[in-house]
């Protein structure tokens, strides 16, 4: 039976486990909400990974890992764009720029990062194509999946905990009224500052995530950290709150009657 389905029913970790146990060869294609990822396996081991619109060429990977400076990267793109990665790798090794191990380690790291990113995808369709192999011009690695599966399971647990803490991204945030809470005395990362800059009861957490280009896991992580630090509080979206029907708590508007009602309740409960 074809291996295809929805990430809501089958997680990436479960898929990797299956590929690992069945020693599968082929490509797992995952179509997320905004991107499509293609992860190739050979005999149940990770061989190659790419996300569409992202450059997974050797030169790009080495440049991102700061093994090639911008000048070298530009020069390779201009003069050697047609050269397959395997040939480029040999040229770099022979010229003494890098060792074979360095090239493989950086590629493994790049492919691993792509798979780790997939762990945060909770929506999307996947299928496993046994006829799809990595592009010929790319260098393949051979990585055991066990460590990735363990990492994925940990991330899943973290994801579940964060979902418990922040059940809905449609709530908004406000700064805590706690005296002494002063954001300027707190060390925040660049991402955290960006999130903080959007905190306003009129913005949902989802809107903040979209504005700061953070995925569900990343925004939950940051919001959770800020909540733990007591800097912010979750609140109801202001516009929704004002649009909501005016549900009456008391059957009367009169304050004295309301107090009398509570006192009647107190007397009744006492007499139970």
């Amino acid at each position: 039976m074809a291996l295809r389905g929805n990430l809501r029913d089958f997680t990436i970790t479960q898929l990797l486990n299956l590929i690992n146990l069945a020693h599968k060869t082929g490509a797992l294609i995952v179509e997320g909400p905004n991107q499509t990822a293609r992860v190739a396996f050979r005999d149940g081991k990770l061989a190659y990974a790419q996300v569409d619109h992202e450059d997974s060429s050797l030169a790009a990977v080495l440049h991102k890992a700061k093994k090639l400076n911008s000048g070298q990267y530009r020069s390779i793109q201009q003069r050697a764009a047609h050269i397959p990665d395997k040939e480029l790798g040999l040229l770099l090794i022979n010229a003494g720029y890098l060792s074979q191990d360095e090239i493989l380690v950086n590629l493994q790291q790049h492919y691993t990062e792509i798979v780790q990113r997939l762990f945060t995808w909770v929506e999307g369709f996947f299928h496993f194509d046994i006829d799809s192999l990595p592009p010929d011009e790319r260098i393949c690695v051979r990585m055991d999946l066990e460590n990735l599966i363990i990492q994925g399971s940990r991330q899943m647990r973290e994801w579940e905990q964060l979902q418990d803490e922040i059940p809905s991204l449609d709530m908004s945030l406000k700064f805590a009224d706690r005296p002494g809470a002063n954001l300027h005395n707190v060390n925040l990362s660049v991402e955290e500052w960006r999130v903080v800059s959007y905190i306003n009861p009129r913005n949902t957490i989802r809107q903040i995530a979209s504005a700061t280009k953070l995925n569900d896991l990343e925004i939950r992580r940051i919001v959770y950290g800020l909540l733990q630090a007591g800097l912010i509080e979750i609140t109801r979206l202001e516009s929704v709150a004002t649009q909501a029907p005016n549900v009456r708590v008391f059957p009367t508007e009169d304050k004295e009657e309301q107090k009398s009602l509570i006192n009647r309740l107190i007397n009744r409960i006492r007499s139970l």
Partner: peptide
Amino acid sequence: VKAILLELLYSILSNME
């Protein structure tokens, strides 16, 4: 249970006052 309900009612009353 009565004690819990009463404490909540006291809080509501105090909140109103």
